[in-house]
Design a protein around this nucleic acid. Structure first.
Lengths: 344, 344
DNA sequence: TGTGGCGATGACAGCGCTGTCAACAAATTG
DNA sequence: CAATTTGTTGACAGCGCTGTCATCGCCACA
């Protein structure tokens, strides 16, 4: 077996393959990217050489030369949170089969880190960027706008999108949550929340508005730290102390709801008999819990998918943005066993 | 304000900055990468131009020229599973401050997809690769070995690492789990498992061995599909039908354990009074549940961190691998309320 | 047999950046 | 004051690939 010359990094290059196959570099490139342009004869010879050298194309060189990277950037606030897992899956399900590479960065729920993540991302020349939320810094907005690539903000709706926007009205969802509990006859309500996540605040706004309209006092117990199951338990403890008469809780998310429910069980507070609990997001754990937790379902997978669809359309088409710059995917109240009518 | 010429993609290049600042391109490059080499005067002029143009360096061109990408590749089987969230955090915590970029790909628990993820990754010329598990395909192994970059397999131990290996003995952990339940006096044991994840099988092996050594029948109920809380409930139902005399369950992971526990509560089976439940991984939900679930804690964050440390050492040093190619980080049994002595 | 058309292949330049070395001025030394 | 060192800056080539155009043979048709 012939020993081809290797480049510095020790890996075979297009030229190495070309030498071995006795063709020009361009031909190798074509075999790999538009095989139909090359005769079957040469194609085979080239592919044999490719296998022989275990050649892997250098994406960076390719991107530099063609100014197409095949990359889509996604920035989420957390990898651990199941909410974003579904979202990412929606994106992957469309983009990966379409030959795109999804590059993810984590902002850790901090606008500052999000900004640097966006800059980093832009340096990789993605063909589009998908963002979580609408709270980007001025700097970040400017960089994004200048880049000219499609930008999709997701998870919430805004009047002033950077480019395109897919999501749901977080405050409407909060409003809907409160409404549900009011309809069940509850008058002593409390929300528990970890407004570390900006969207939590918007949900609280809706909640507050609904209660105020009904003449019910909108009580809230919250701590500004990352949400967790355990935090749900802690907040429930605090709530019981401060507002012992509460009969129904709206939780900022399902983790808090589960934690609150566990704490109720620990303290012998019957759910839903003595206390109704409503979650948010409708993660798997809400529906599987005992008692099953009512929740507001958010279209996470669908948001990811819709974003991917739009991007594919733009990238494949002439780069034209679609007519509708904003899509409201709504939410859905899922009634389960943890919320029940108040028989006071 | 002067209007600099822009390149095709519409973004400013190093040359545009150089033109505006009336210096050469090399100087701009130096200002950005080794500012101390440039006089304060020029440095300021250049930085002004950089800001003015909102210049973002093209990483691909930089990587191509310097053959250093500053990228670390990580391939995990799932983004949704909390297990890998902790792991990724461990990696990020070290690599990001060190100026590296962590690129993640998802294999969806499928060796075939993992292989293509590895190939894709290699095309991006990462400076090191971190893999989950040790079950890579032959092709993938070969490509990895040829690449010459540091490769770290994690989460389990293997006799034949591709390069380096950090993890714990999954079968020892399974053994330890069984041992714990035996010590508590249980003799009617059952494992429930979703061996979709290869490591689950190794845990079962250890479990089986421990029981066989003690002359206890190693019963197992399993379905080969992705694990979830709900699956835990389903498997518990199946177990109760097939092995109603069971008094203690070893669950392949904490999600299954939680689902099994919910199902017990649904059916009025007292935990731990009538049924002991032991989880695996010690995710947050295990400790926060009611009753709190005993579990085998795995050093996920530490594995990520250790992998990052080793890579940093190699990349910064001369590229030399450390003496010890394999690190066993062990596991720890966390006793909580869901497992109790059997008073039969 | 001559001419046009077509598909297949190659030569060449250049994407945006960095490594290397040369050039030069200022500072230091004997 | 000449010789040398030190510190800054620039010119140039090239990383590995692809877009573009030129070239070459071959066939069909007249």
């Amino acid at each position: 077996m012939k020993m081809p010359k290797k480049n510095i990094s020790g890996r075979a290059t297009l030229n190495d393959v070309a030498t071995i196959a006795h063709v020009s570099a361009v031909t190798v490139s074509r075999v790999l990217r538009r095989p139909e342009m090359v005769s079957a004869d040469l194609r085979e010879r080239v592919l044999k050489a490719v296998r022989e050298l275990a050649y892997i194309p250098n994406q960076m060189a390719s991107a530099l030369a063609s100014s197409r990277t095949g990359r889509i950037g996604v920035i989420v606030p957390s990898f651990t949170n199941g909410v974003f897992g579904d979202f990412l899956r929606g994106i992957h399900d469309l983009m990966v089969p379409a030959g795109f590479q999804v590059v993810m960065l984590n902002s850790n729920y901090m606008p500052g880190l999000e900004e640097s993540a966006i800059i980093t991302m832009l340096g990789q020349f993605p063909e589009a960027i998908i963002l979580t939320g609408t709270g980007q810094t001025k700097q970040a907005r400017r960089a994004l706008e200048q880049s000219g690539i499609p930008v999709i903000q997701t998870f919430e709706l805004t009047n002033r999108p950077i480019d395109m926007n897919i999501g749901l009205s977080q405050s409407d969802a909060g409003y809907g949550a409160a409404e549900h509990l009011l309809k069940l006859g509850h008058r002593k309500l409390c929300a528990i929340s970890a407004p570390f996540d900006a969207r939590s605040l918007k949900r609280l706004e809706g909640y507050r508005q609904a209660l105020t309209e009904s003449g019910v006092e909108p009580r809230i117990v919250s701590v500004d730290e990352p949400s967790s199951i355990w935090l749900g338990s802690r907040l429930l403890v605090e709530m019981v102390e401060r507002f012992p008469e509460t009969t129904a809780i709206f939780c900022g998310n399902d983790n808090l709801a589960l934690g609150a429910m566990f704490e109720c069980q620990r303290r012998g507070i019957a759910v839903p008999g003595r206390m109704s609990i409503l979650g948010f997001n409708d993660l798997e754990l809400a529906g599987s819990a005992y008692p099953a937790i009512s929740s507001i379902a958010t279209p996470r997978y669908e948001m990811g998918r819709a974003a991917a669809e739009i991007i594919l359309e733009i990238v494949r088409g002439s780069g034209k943005r679609p007519e509708r710059r904003q899509i409201d995917l709504g939410f859905k109240l899922i009634e389960r066993d943890s919320t029940a009518a108040w028989r006071g």
